[in-house]
Design a protein around this nucleic acid. Structure first.
Lengths: 165, 165
DNA sequence: CTTGGAATGTCAACAAAGCTGACGTATTGT
DNA sequence: ACAATACGTCAGCTTTGTTGACATTCCAAG
């Protein structure tokens, strides 16, 4: 059998395989966001609020600028979301201690309650998927996702992850 | 060492691991859409057009209703996108042969050209990620993604995938 | 101590892409 | 004949993103 693929089995790199991966990402992401979206619909919040709340919960005291980098939106867009959360008493925005231009963001008790509700739903789905697929699959899943990120996003991802160890 | 986890290693199911998976999905999806988005910005098209073009390319002759089910949007939303694509000569909408109420959708040559451009970019990233992670990781990646889909979406996914074998 | 630049906030206007509801038309199946 | 289906469309609304302009506050360098 001729080694047309450089001596390795690269069948997983055929266009058809790649297209299937693309479609899997598309359909899976729908599932990924479905449960939080369901919870948020009916409240005055949307996916953007979920993202803000998630990363504030994850890195309490984070600055607006930092959140901007993580979320990759404009400050005007984030500000609109943040303002409603602050006004509604879910997020506390405190003037920075060392640098008073900065605002450090924290969830209030009410904010934490919403975060937990959203997170519980999303983690439940992730847990079910992980459990169904098994530890080895999970490892592969994470490897491919990390390789798919833009360099700057991967940096952000590691930064958050490593702060938790 | 006590078997507090039912005899298996379930460390990959800790809340921290699940949160990392959630964030990996978030950051990776950004990368996943980044290249097509870049190509489309500047044209009068967006991500919604990309999705329509992708699935029409994937299942030529598909009906509007079928596309609606795959994309999970309202017909008004899809119609707006489809109309611009037809008007611009990227998509051909032909009256159904057996059932004249239906419209069968096809890409024109110009439509195929755009699809190829978008697909090339997205597949290049996917290929790089797959290559970096290796075949075993890719298998795990796919398993977790499939387990994460809603049942109906998984059905759609298999349907498209199996039509290509 | 003044001044330039950085971080933040805000106003206005706009665009993409989703939604609901209502309605019209052609076609099909009962 | 009539109900249901597939599609298209009008109108209006929401969420979430965008630019651009401008004010405020503050740090730090000259």
């Amino acid at each position: 059998m001729p080694e047309v693929q450089g001596g390795e089995n690269l069948l997983f790199l055929t266009d058809e395989q790649l297209r299937q991966g693309i479609e899997a990402m598309f359909f899976a992401y729908r599932g990924f966001t479905a449960d939080p979206d369901r919870i948020l619909s009916g409240m005055a919040y949307g996916r953007a609020h979920h993202r803000a709340v998630h990363f504030i919960a994850r890195a309490p005291g984070t600055t607006v600028n930092n959140l901007l980098n993580i979320l990759g939106v404009t400050k005007q867009s984030l500000n609109r979301v943040l303002r409603t959360l602050v006004d509604d008493g879910l997020v506390d925005s405190r003037v920075g201690k060392s640098d008073k231009r900065e605002r450090n963001l924290y969830l209030t008790d009410e904010g934490m309650e919403l975060e937990r509700k959203l997170s519980d739903a999303q983690r439940a789905r992730m847990r079910a998927a992980y459990r169904a697929a098994g530890p080895e699959a999970v490892s592969g899943f994470r490897q491919v996702l990390e390789a798919m990120m833009d360099t700057e996003m991967r940096r952000q991802y590691y930064k958050i992850r490593d702060a938790k160890s």
